[in-house]
Design a protein around this nucleic acid. Structure first.
Length: 269
DNA sequence: CTGTTATGTGCAG
DNA sequence: TGCACCTAACAGA
């Protein structure tokens, strides 16, 4: 599930449900009990998404940090709140709403209650986030333009650009016809600007749809009255055949992950 | 039931 | 570079 768009969408949705009301915080799994106790009964004054990280600003002055990693998931319960599964790391429950709202978190890579300084230390390691209004694209462009590393590695490097994952990486490079292994410094300034601009629009579309859809219906010849299934929602990611040229899609390992690309439309040089 | 897979990251060697 | 970690859905025996 989680690239940057997921986190921004969660922050937005959860803020609507729980922000500015007292929340009962527990850790049914037991791994987060001490942290939960720090903010139990307090209010979340602000939800903040930054790349793939989410921060909760509590009325106690604490700042919560969540990173979903590969497996993390939120589940929202309204009204009938079930006994939590044993894997629920954190449950937030609002009792002053009708119906009752509970939000369960399972499987996150990071789940802790810290300080403003802890948050600052995390943010400091992150590059600009295309979904944030305070993002400075020049930071991404300057870093990429002088790097000998593959552009496919730079796009996954959260200190270069925050929020891109394996799907958006492949899709961004396909859209701009760039081979994943081309060194960043061999990309033109225009290409880097275009990569940034497209990342903004792709991620925004992801927040809106609450899923990754990078294609347009006309590109894949999909009828306007039928939902686009996941297998059709990308140009190259997990595809066998290139949507543009009909040739076989290949994968290449870049930054330890398989990067899908079309060798015809994304030539090496 | 077992094995596989996944849109992620950090650390050991 | 490889592995450890975290979870659940799904395919196949």
């Amino acid at each position: 599930m989680p690239e940057g768009h997921t986190i921004h969408r969660i922050a937005r949705d959860h803020a609507r449900l729980l922000q500015d009301r007292p929340v009962h915080v527990t850790s049914p799994q037991g791994r987060c009990v001490a942290d939960a106790a720090l903010v139990d009964g307090a209010m979340i004054e602000r939800y903040e998404a930054y790349g793939k990280h989410m921060f909760t600003w509590w009325s106690t002055g604490h700042v919560g940090h969540i990173h979903l990693g590969l497996f993390g998931k939120y589940r929202i319960h309204r009204g009938e709140v079930p006994t939590p599964r044993p894997t629920v790391r954190l449950r937030l429950e609002s009792a002053d709403t009708e119906p009752v709202i509970a939000i369960d978190l399972t499987g996150p890579t990071a789940c802790s209650i810290g300080t403003v300084d802890d948050r600052a230390a995390i943010v400091k390691r992150l590059g600009p986030d295309p979904l944030r209004s305070d993002a400075d694209p020049e930071r991404f462009i300057a870093r990429a333009a002088k790097s000998s590393k593959a552009i496919g590695a730079l796009l996954l490097d959260q200190s270069v650009i925050a929020g891109i994952g394996n799907v958006y990486r492949a899709e961004l490079l396909f859209v701009h016809g760039i081979h994943p292994q081309r060194p960043g410094r061999d990309c033109s300034t225009i290409e880097l600007h275009e990569l940034w601009d497209t990342s903004v629009s792709m991620l925004r579309a992801g927040v809106r749809a609450n899923r990754i859809v990078t294609v347009t219906r006309s590109d894949i010849g999909w009828p306007s009255n039928k939902a686009i299934p996941r297998s059709e929602a990308t140009y190259v990611y997990k595809r066998d055949v290139c949507v543009r040229c009909g040739g076989p899609v290949q994968t290449v390992e870049v930054a330890n992950r398989a990067c899908y690309f079309c060798p015809v439309d994304q030539p090496r040089r």
